[in-house]
Simulated scan of single mutants.
Amino acid sequence: MQHRAKKFSARTKAIAATAGVAAVGAGAFGAFSATADTTSAAPAAAPVAVRSEAVTTSTHLTVEAATDAARAALDAAEKEGQRVSVAVVDRDGNTLVTLRGDGAGPQSYESAVKKAFTAVSWNAPTSELAKRLENAPNLKDIPGTLFLGGGAPVAHDDAPVAGVGVAGAPSGDLDEKFARAGVAALGDGS
């Protein structure tokens, strides 16, 4: 029995040759990479001490205090039979705590966060801020804000440190009443 060698096309030969060269090249590169000299790499930069005048310190509400405020606001609403959501945000507008009361509407959660953010951003109750829309209607276009009653700022040494937002009661006045109850829970009693 005689075997005949199959003839490969020029295209098949070219593909096989390219694959062979690629395999050899990859092996050589891998060997080179594995033995690369890492001693010449630049050392990591040491931390630089910054002078005191170049930094600022800010005061933030603790998570425990934020939880106390949210619980007080929700309790005040529940005592009056209102189904609300409560949010507490920090000085930077980051959400610290949210509580969605039993039966609160689906829109109330996001509205509470936006009211809290709005209150801390301007260090004013959102009911007062809503009145400013008459003279500056574009305020409502600022992302993340909601100019409806229900947000109350939390201040320490006259500087805003947080905001409490409540949403879901039949009126902004009620929402804000409950938000103020949350802020009052943070007072020192004096």
Rank of each mutant, 00 (worst) to 15 (best):
S171K: 04
E78L: 13
W122S: 05
N138C: 03
P170Q: 04
E53P: 00
R83M: 14
T126V: 08
A87M: 12
V21P: 00
A31Y: 10
A66V: 07
A34V: 02
R71L: 11
G151C: 10
A87T: 12
V89M: 08
D92L: 14
A46G: 09
I142G: 00
A19N: 08
A169I: 05
G168L: 01
K140Y: 02
K79L: 13
G163L: 07
A130M: 08
A19M: 15
G163P: 01
G105P: 01
G163K: 04
A14N: 08
H156V: 13
A184N: 11
K177Y: 03
V183K: 06
E64P: 00
A136L: 10
A42M: 11
F29H: 01
A152P: 01
T98Q: 13
T56A: 14
V88S: 04
D158N: 12
V166Y: 03
S52L: 13
F8S: 10
L96W: 00
V183N: 05
V120C: 04
D157F: 06
E134N: 14
P143W: 05
N138A: 15
G93F: 05
G149H: 08
A66S: 13
A136I: 09
S33F: 10
G189Y: 06
A179S: 07
G25L: 14
R132Y: 10
V154C: 09
S52V: 14
A28K: 00
S171G: 08
S40I: 14
A10Y: 09
S40Y: 09
I15C: 05
F32C: 02
A41G: 06
A28D: 00
R71Q: 15
P137V: 09
K79G: 12
G150P: 00
E64F: 04
K177D: 03
F29T: 10
P170H: 03
S108D: 07
W122K: 07
R180Q: 10
S52E: 14
A26R: 02
G81K: 07
E134F: 12
T95C: 06
E64Y: 04
D68A: 15
A17Y: 07
